[in-house]
Design a protein around this nucleic acid. Structure first.
Length: 421
RNA sequence: GUGGGUGUGGCCUAGCGGUUAAGGCGCCAGGUUGUGGCCCUGGAGAGCGUGGGUUCAAAUCCCAUCACCCACCCCA
């Protein structure tokens, strides 16, 4: 066991993981482009203030999960724990408000949260997400939900359940929190210790408690939906109506609260059926106040993020996705010094013709090189020995196709391969 | 941060107090002259997470520690 290992909770993505992982990333990008979203890549590191001011100083993500450090110049930086704040910072910094609105963006990259690792939970995690900035209408909420929904459909995750809620605006939430606290406080003694703690720190989270799910005080708790301002109710009603029209099934769940302070109005989550623990595959919401918190003008926005590792986890559980890695079209086999030199130029020509060509390992026996070509899954072996080099030909040997081995002139190898499929 | 489980070559696993730690996969090399996939043979590779202790003797028992996994918490 080597004494140097990957940091806790951080993992190497190995060649065997590649097919599934790329499948997920490519599918996500394809779906995003189908909705005309454009790629944005922000730094993995931001001024810590970007997250402190947006997500909320006492959100878990910022308070206990953020990697923060001072750089050599004394700036206080943070490894990004989530994507929306950085994208909004970039939106502001690059004056995207003067582009046609809304601005549709997607991103894909690593994020960092200092948390205890667990199944589906990592300290470095990959997220794919989209942000729709500049459109406050219900249509934008619906568009991002539809995009996320389609992404899961395309991947074959048909059974993820969508739960939606509206948590209103900051003011309505403020009123709700006050009432909820009042409602729960008399029952504090009978609530679980965790809920008692949340009662003081973050009342909304009490609603999320699994332990107290059946507690009378929670069952009879007021619903945030009853506290929404008329405009918020209207917004939410229209979101739901559009989802209905699209045939996207969902459940309204007034107990959904998302972890970040900047959310307002619509919030949602996609979860596998009957799963507990680290099960959320992706979630999103509207964040109309966020850009203001970052020092910009009031700007509406909505988006979602989904965890690549959690998608992969779910695909594996269901046996979905591609299994076989891409195999090369050709494996070069070189024998002798002249053969080795000739194989190099033949390989270059084949690659120029668009074929994937695995280079030869000239020191090894023909048998060894052929075995290696077979295990690599190459469709053809191209054998070049001193005799072939002298005559300007190669031996074209089909490995996965049934066809006879043939002697082919150096200039006609690519064509010969094409004609043999 | 809290609780539980696990820790043997690259991977999977056997061994659970006593000779040079066993097997499978994978890897490398051979099975006559430049031809693979099956099969056969041989080889390299661990001293049993780490440290300490018990014992004549420990991978096997005890303690500590670390890592990983699972759950709580929280979230992707």
């Amino acid at each position: 066991m080597p004494d140097l290992r990957a940091p806790r909770g951080m993992h190497d993505l190995l060649p065997d993981d590649e097919p599934l992982w790329l499948h997920v990333r490519d599918t996500a990008e394809r779906v995003a482009r189908a909705f005309d979203y454009r790629l944005i890549q922000t730094p993995l590191v931001e001024d810590a203030g970007v997250f402190q001011r947006s997500a909320g100083g006492d959100s878990d993500i910022v308070a206990k999960e953020m990697y923060v450090f001072d750089d050599r110049g004394g700036d206080r930086l943070a490894l990004r724990p989530e994507g929306t704040a950085g994208v909004c910072r970039a939106y502001l910094e690059h004056g995207m408000a003067s582009r046609p609105q809304p601005v549709r963006l997607y991103y894909c990259g690593p994020f960092f949260r200092y948390d205890r690792p667990q199944a589906g939970r990592y300290r470095q995690l990959w997220q794919f997400g989209v942000e729709n900035i500049g459109d406050g209408s219900p249509a934008a909420d619906v568009e991002t939900i539809e995009l996320q929904h389609l992404l899961y459909q395309e991947l074959g995750l048909r059974d993820l359940a969508l739960r939606v809620n509206s948590i209103g605006t900051a003011e309505t939430r403020h009123r709700y929190v006050a009432t909820l606290t009042e409602h729960l406080r008399p029952h504090a003694a009978t609530l679980s210790p965790d809920s008692q703690r949340r009662l003081e720190s973050n009342v909304l989270r009490v609603l999320d408690s699994k332990e107290d799910a059946g507690h009378p005080a929670l069952v009879s708790a007021p619903s945030i939906l009853d506290f929404l301002a008329p405009a918020d109710v209207d917004h939410f009603t229209r979101v739901c109506a559009s989802l209905d029209a699209l045939g996207i099934s969902y459940a309204v769940d007034p107990r959904i609260v998302r972890g970040l302070d900047y959310y307002a109005r619509t919030v949602w989550e996609f979860e596998p059926p009957e799963a507990g623990g680290q099960s959320t595959v992706g979630g999103g919401g509207r964040y109309d106040g966020l850009i203001e918190m970052l020092g910009g003008p009031h700007t509406p926005g909505v988006g979602f993020a989904t965890g690549i590792e959690r998608i992969v986890l779910n695909l594996r559980e269901r046996g979905l996705g591609p299994a076989a890695p891409a195999a090369p079209d050709v494996a070069m086999i070189a024998l002798g010094e002249a053969g080795e030199a000739a194989a190099l130029s033949v390989a270059r020509a084949l690659r120029a013709a668009g074929l994937a060509v695995r280079g030869a390992t000239p020191g090894r026996s023909m048998r060894a090189q052929l075995r290696s070509a077979t295990s690599a899954g190459a469709r053809f072996a191209v054998i070049v020995g001193d005799a072939e080099a002298r005559d300007g030909v190669v031996q074209l040997k089909p490995l996965t196709v049934t066809a006879d081995q043939a002697t082919v002139a150096v200039g006609e190898v690519a064509e010969a391969i094409r004609s043999r499929g």
